[in-house]
Amino acid sequence: MSRIARRFAELKKQNRAGFVAFITAGDPNLETSFEILKDLPAAGADVIELGMPFTDPMADGPAIQLSSLRALKAGHTMAKTLDLVRRFRTHDQTTPIVLMGYYNPIYSYGGQKFCKDASTAGIDGLIIVDLSPEEDPELRPHAKAAGLDIIRLATPTTDAKRLPAVLDGASGFLYYVSITGVTGSKDIDPISVAKALKPLKAATSLPVAVGFGIKSEADAKAVAQTADAAVVGSALVAEISRFVGKDGKLSPGAPEAVLSLVRRLAASAHGARN
């Protein structure tokens, strides 16, 4: 059983929703990013989404755009992202890590080699925002051979006609993008999310995580009533931004602040069904 499957099975047994924390690898620099990453599980992250920085993150709002650019400015590379996970795995062998980002850095690395190296480093799945189901057959066999889940996205525009294409080849979990918009932009509407989850749940046995637009403890709690997990990203990397000056200098305290926010959000998600 994969780490992802095992984690969602545990959550189901405990009848609670999971909390998925997104941070960008290398943001604001390699060491700070590692400090945050290694303590995410203790702060309540059931699954970690690690952003692969890209110069042109066209599905992301300003918070994640800036986090990507901070990482790149600090000299981050794909090899360093894999290193980060390798180091994390010396502390934690059970928390699933899913890489999230855009296709070009993976394509540039070489799809087959990337899947092999990512799996060896301890990565469990891939969310590639701009690799549509129509285009991913070139990567899917390599991911499968390496034991990596391809996590697909369903959105408010995914109608009954489109859903089978999204689910075909999906594994790990399904990621429901709760707003029509970029990350961190609009406010989530828990009622329409609950309504949207029904046909998804009916069509797949995969767990469904909900993200894009969860900003507060109240949002996390509301989503966790119906979703298998709540994902928060923009709010976390925006917390890092608060410690980065206009000159790019980092003031101390960023890891503590991010982890404290994770603790509050995770507690809301975990306690939602009590």
């Binding site: 599905a59 996205l153 525009t157 006609k161 993008v177």
Partner: peptide, 13 residues
């Protein structure tokens, strides 16, 4: 090809 976010896929089709 069609390398876009899933939100856009139904529109592009």
């Amino acid at each position: 090809g069609r390398y876009v976010a899933e939100t856009l896929m139904p529109l592009i089709l």
